[in-house]
Amino acid sequence: MSIEPTTLPVRSGEDVVKVRQAVRTLAMDLGFSLVDQTKVITAASELARNTLTYGGGGEVRIERLNQGPKRSGVRLTFEDRGPGIANIELALTDGYTTGTGLGLGLNGARKLSHEFDIWSQPGVGTRVTITRWK
């Protein structure tokens, strides 16, 4: 069950900052510890940057998850209509990059999340979903 999903654009560097702020607000609201807040916004930042740099921009859906009183979390879905990823396994390797980063973006976001899901088709786009529980 999830309530109040928000969708934000990811089209500029300033959008990336806004995404981080929105994710932090939600994580704080759910009572995440400071370290957990930092982990989820860092993951959000990595993925937002990927959407911008490799996907040519897109959007993110931010969801609050509530599964019973003890289990709450944040789910983020980044989607773009960019060139897609031909070899997902390779893209998930630390240090691999086609751009200018350190190549830690995708795998870094995976390490900082409890659930990670990626869908991509060359020429169609990419969708990455991560979940971090409290």
Partner: peptide
């Protein structure tokens, strides 16, 4: 560098 940032960087492998 803040502790939470350092812990996250280590987790990230950076």
């Amino acid at each position: 560098m803040q502790p939470a940032v350092a812990i996250t960087l280590v987790e990230l492998g950076l």
